[in-house]
Write a protein that binds this DNA or RNA. Structure first.
Lengths: 206, 206
DNA sequence: TGCGCTACCCGTAAAATTACGGGTGCAATA
DNA sequence: TATTGCACCCGTAATTTTACGGGTAGCGCA
């Protein structure tokens, strides 16, 4: 019988233990490893070649999105199931674009989680209803350009346009244009709202 | 032998399972209940009179701080140990003010968590070094007045001073004063930074 | 009773932001 | 090759925010 080989990637030891405890009750599940950050997860995935990687999005060293991309590149047979505590449309969209096969929230019931693992292991995709609803009611922002992300990050730190111009070595007028483009793209009426949206949707590092 | 009666309050089933699995390996620990939100935790604490409540801060229905306050009021013999994934100085300070006996991060190692439980069960306080460091490097904001909290919340939503004046039924000039007081109190140079600080420090609901 | 705190009110002026208009050069790509 | 998108540049004007100054009234607490 072919058991599903599972790698757990989460920085919280209690979460890894909980997942391991849950999966140990399923005869067709085999937890082959646990990784406490993204970097280690990538190495462990190469070493252990699991069928499914259960991936937290917020981890130190390397976040779940980058780790997902790296794992999909290095061992394409490993499916990635994103397991997150705070889901944002943009985060999920990025994870799926990076090659994740599914996404589910940590608040999900055990049965749903087990079903999700089986589904992605079978090569199908699985996105929980809760997350689907989120993607519908709050569609992801069309992605920001590199410059826009830099400027948005600076906005959240309270830099004025002049500050940003000096920091980036461009004119104030250009910064104003970047800011206006950001406001339009993320649907903010002003820079304070832009900061609110950026942090709530995790468009920048918190 | 008096085992330590423990109630687990966390909205994530996997975390509750992980904690239960960990504590089941300790002969002096007895997990007597699990609650998936703050409201239920308060009821369960009354019903089960545990020695220690392991309390997540971010939960639906009622957050961990309110739940801590309610539990300390209704059954003072129950010690509360805060277990959080994203610690902020303000959140921890509020939890301790609400009567929590300790605080530790979810990224803590199992041994530290077990030690923390034993310590608060024995009537001592326990704040992990990581959280102590956070409180030192980033001391909590002197608490905002009710009006200031309202205004700060509106700032994060991108309302202009005029909008807020209409919403609260006061003059723009008064709103300006509230905003200035907020900026000074939380150490922000302008409203965009105020929004950034408010959301990063969880001074308002996310 | 006096003190401090909060919630309000008012005016003026400088600074910053936002909203319009107009451009060029460059790189990728269809 | 033509188009598109991005990063830049410039000007003007309205609006908003921020920084000063001043004030009153109510409330709890020492």
């Amino acid at each position: 019988m072919n058991r599903i080989r599972i790698l757990l990637a989460d920085d919280h030891a209690v979460v890894r233990m909980g997942l391991a405890a849950l999966f140990s009750t399923k005869k067709d599940f085999d937890v082959v490893g646990q990784s406490k950050n993204g970097e280690i997860a990538v190495r462990d995935a190469e070493r252990l070649s699991p069928d499914v990687v259960v991936m937290d999005l917020m981890m130190p060293k390397m976040d779940g999105i980058e780790a997902t991309r790296a794992i999909r590149a290095k061992c394409p047979s490993a499916k990635v199931l994103v397991l997150t505590s705070y889901a944002t449309s943009d985060g999920i969209a990025k994870a799926l674009a990076a090659g994740a096969a599914g996404a589910i929230m940590k608040s999900a019931e055990n049965t749903e989680l087990v079903a999700a693992i089986r589904k992605v292991a079978a090569g199908q995709t699985f996105v929980s209803d809760e997350i689907k609803g989120l993607m519908d009611t709050d569609p992801p922002v069309s992605s920001l350009t590199g410059r826009q992300s830099e400027v948005l990050q600076s906005l959240t730190l309270g830099l004025t346009n002049k500050d940003i111009a000096v920091q980036l070595g461009i004119s104030i007028r250009s910064v104003e244009e970047h800011v206006n483009n950001i406001l339009e793209k993320i649907g903010a009426a002003n820079r304070a709202e832009a900061v609110g949206i950026a942090l709530r949707k995790r468009l920048v590092k918190i």
